[in-house]
């Protein structure tokens, strides 16, 4: 097991109201090379879990362990290794890249600060290689991100995260802000990378169709609790919990006939 999250709880301060508890006793594990989907509606706590996994916030209770490192209390060399091996891609491809850095600086920053390449020339070569790997033109290295589209920016973000060869990539709704056609490209890129680099991916999403394509394992969250977890087949073909069932029922179907039938069935259900 690469990372284990052991019954963590987290509250946000909501002064003058009492603190709002957004995670209750969440437990989940991430194994090497596996893609795991965290799904749930807005406010279900999925982004909070992602932030805890990245040590951006600390849960009040429970423990997070990554490859022998106590993530919540990590310092010094442990924290450095954690920062090198656990990376993330954000939802917003506009706000998540520093507008005053060139593509080369953005992608090369990890190499620079973790001293993974000794010289600027070697870094530049690695950046170029990485850009090709994610489908960007290395000639664009000296440009700023404002001239790139949302999909290209997300590729830059993925390259920036992956160039230091992390073992876990946490993606917080990485395609929610993209056009549908571009979404598929980015998802396919992530899947490619997962296979090539034996990367574990934690994929936070509210869109089940996307998760179904990418993730072998799925965790369903509701109001800060894990309501169900299992393999893709278990969750999609045989959901046990009513919340999971309603979540699946809400996925839009491309076939209008099927869609109409479903809506009719749901109306009947609510009428009864």
């Amino acid at each position: 097991m690469l990372m284990s999250i052991d019954s963590i709880s987290k509250s946000y301060n909501a002064f003058p109201n009492p603190p709002a508890k957004v995670l209750h006793d969440v437990t989940l594990n991430v194994d090497t090379g596996e893609a795991i989907g965290l799904v749930g509606e807005s406010g279900s706590g999925k982004s909070t879990i992602a932030k805890c996994m990245l040590a951006l916030i600390k849960p009040e209770e429970g423990a997070i362990t990554y490859d022998g490192i106590d993530v919540i209390h990590a310092r010094g060399e442990d924290l450095r290794r954690f920062r090198r091996e656990v990376q993330m891609v954000f939802q917003d491809p506009y706000g998540s890249l520093n507008p005053r850095m060139t593509v080369e600086e953005l992608i090369g920053e990890g190499l620079l600060i973790h001293k993974l390449e000794p010289t600027a020339a070697a870094r530049r070569a690695r950046v170029a290689e990485m850009m090709e790997m994610v489908g960007l033109n290395p000639n664009d290295m000296d440009r700023y991100t404002r001239s790139f589209s949302g999909g290209q920016r997300q590729r830059i973000a993925i390259a920036r995260a992956l160039v230091i060869r992390p073992r876990i990539l946490v993606c917080d709704e990485p395609v929610a802000a993209l056009d549908v056609s571009v979404q598929a490209q980015v998802i396919n890129l992530l899947q490619d990378m997962q296979k090539k680099l034996n990367l574990a991916i934690v994929f936070v999403a509210h869109d089940l169709a996307v998760v179904r394509h990418l993730c072998e394992k799925i965790v369903v969250l509701h109001k800060g609790k894990v309501v169900e977890q299992g393999t893709r087949e278990q969750i999609f073909d045989n959901p046990q919990m009513p919340y999971t069932q309603s979540l699946l029922a809400a996925v839009p179907v491309p076939d209008p006939v099927v869609g109409r039938a479903r809506r009719a069935a749901r109306r009947l259900e609510t009428a009864n």
Binding site: L56, R83, Q87, F90, L97, N98, G110, I113, R160
Partner: peptide, 14 residues
């Protein structure tokens, strides 16, 4: 508060 600052923290910048 901008996401790129959190991104830099995740990357491990000083």
């Amino acid at each position: 508060e901008q996401p790129f600052v959190a991104g830099a923290q995740v990357l491990g910048v000083s």
